[in-house]
Design a protein around this nucleic acid. Structure first.
Length: 449
RNA sequence: UCCUGAGUAGCUCAAUGGCAGAGCAUUCGGCUGUUAACCGAAGGGUUGUAGGUUCGAGUCCUACCUCAGGAGCCA
């Protein structure tokens, strides 16, 4: 079945350091090929990294040299050779190639479309299925995988039960966002979920501490570097937790994720071009800054007076993107802004007992202008208040009967938040655009490939 | 939905209203330490689409299409 006849132990490029001086086998692709007369410098990639091989014409059989010399980029092959440390190599190691076995050779007539040189966004997105193979994109996906694992891991080890809400829903969860609508057996409409929050409030009442982790859909025609129409969200929901407890949770949660990334992805972060010091500052032993909405508002007014913001923030309004960018740029750590005016927030948020015009909510703004990565709140737990909120927001009461039931039968204070995975990945990796944070991004103008 | 910008070779981009060009990629040749290698040569075009102005349009005008950046909204 497999084409090669192995003569040396199989390993990966990431683990070459454990095989210095030894003969090894790599299953890989030809990433690049340079030559200097009777010397070939093929670069191999295998999904864990890249490494350069050296092939002197005099050191290998004629057939091996000629095969590699005329091999096309991204052709698949198996390489046997010896690992040698070399200061000239970016990764510290090179392969003295002994033999190669080509799996599939790409014909010259249909060369691999993605070049090592620069390419435009449209072209790369059109070839996303191949773009993923480049070192930078591969590194991002590896970091994403760790972020997702660390996020779930945090809740798993702290006694949370994963309870996944439905993806097909009968109505808008929050009554605000544009939803993707679909026919549901003729008589009914179904909508793709924009949040599992309302459902996990129910599972929290059953299990205490729960979380959900899955895809989320927004049909808003947002066209910015921060938006996808399909993205992944992880949402904890906890009974008997107030807003302060929720902020503590968000802080511990984010610190865990960043710590895990720093543990195992320093090489990837270097490939991506992220300044690791900025992540180390996040996990340094001090608290995340916490600002009330009023304090953040004052900060924005001051910035406007000093000419740092073009528009003066209007008290009572939500913060715009430039506002969030400014606030977050003032801190090295994620900043938590809490107690927004209730009027600009969702109907289910508990009013602040000290000021009923404010909601017990928190937005966590990532550093470096990445904007809101977490939004959460303490939920309304009083039946009558929630009912009147639903009426005030012109939401269909019938659709929310089950949600009201949660306040009818043994209601307790509870809180939760949602974190968008892609914005978190964009922040941790230092990316310009969330479209690079997910294997196949869905955006306003793109659903291919 | 609104504002702004861009569509020219497979890719990245040039081209006063006057012969359609370069680099990379591909092919051929050269080079024993290259790092997006380099040097020489060849092939490669319905200039997004449809109209219009002009002796002449890649270039000017109109409409449309596609994409990008931003706003609003959001994670």
């Amino acid at each position: 079945m497999l084409p090669e006849t192995r003569t040396a132990p199989l390993t990966t490029i990431a683990e070459l350091g454990q095989h210095e001086g030894q003969a090894i086998t790599l299953r890989c692709w030809l990433y690049n090929l340079r030559s200097s007369g009777k010397l070939l410098f093929p670069t191999f990639r295998d999904g864990t990294g890249t490494v350069q091989g050296i092939v002197p014409k005099a050191a290998v059989p004629e057939q091996v040299f000629e095969t590699l010399k005329s091999l096309t980029l991204e052709s698949s092959l198996t390489v046997t050779g010896r690992v040698r440390a070399d200061v000239r190599a970016p990764s510290g190691f090179e392969i003295d190639v002994d033999d190669v076995n080509v799996g599939q050779r790409i014909p010259e007539e249909t060369p691999y479309p993605i070049q090592l040189k620069e390419a435009g966004v449209d072209f790369l997105m059109e070839h996303r299925h191949l773009w993923l193979r480049t070192p930078r994109q591969s590194a991002i996906l590896r970091v994403r995988a760790t972020i997702m694992r660390a996020a779930a891991e945090y809740f798993d080890v702290h006694g949370y039960f994963r309870t996944d809400p439905p993806i097909l829903t009968p109505n808008a969860c929050e009554g605000t966002s544009e939803l993707f609508e679909m026919d549901y057996f003729g008589d009914d409409k179904a909508y793709l979920t924009q949040s599992g929050q309302l459902y996990i409030e129910a599972t929290a009442m059953a299990l205490g501490k729960v979380y959900s982790f899955g895809p989320t859909f927004r049909a808003e025609k947002s066209k910015t570097r921060r938006h996808l129409t399909e993205f992944w969200m992880i949402e904890p929901e906890v009974t008997y937790m107030d807003l302060d407890g929720l902020m503590d949770l968000a802080e511990a949660f984010l610190t865990h994720i960043v710590s895990r990334v720093l543990e195992t992805h320093r090489g990837d972060l270097k490939v991506i071009g992220k300044d690791v010091a900025k992540l180390e500052a996040v996990v340094a032993p001090s608290k995340f800054p916490r600002l009330t909405y009023d304090e953040a508002h004052a900060m924005l007014l001051d910035a406007h007076e000093r000419g740092l913001l073009p528009a003066a923030h209007v008290y009572g309004d939500d913060f715009g993107s430039p506002d969030e960018t400014y606030i977050s740029s003032q801190f090295e750590k994620p900043v938590m802004v809490h107690r927004y005016p209730a009027a600009v927030k969702a109907f289910y948020m508990q009013p602040d007992p000290l000021d009923a015009t404010k909601a017990l909510c928190v937005d966590v703004l990532a550093p470096e202008g990445y904007g809101e990565i977490i939004g959460g709140s303490q939920r309304v737990d009083d039946y009558e208040l929630l009912k009147s909120r639903i009426e005030e927001h012109d939401l269909p009461m019938a659709a929310f009967q089950w949600y009201l039931d949660l306040r009818k039968y043994g209601s307790v204070p509870h809180s939760g938040f949602g974190m968008g995975i892609e914005r978190c990945v964009a922040w941790i990796c230092g990316l310009e655009h969330v479209r690079e944070t997910i294997p196949f991004p869905r955006t306003l103008n793109r659903i291919y490939p």
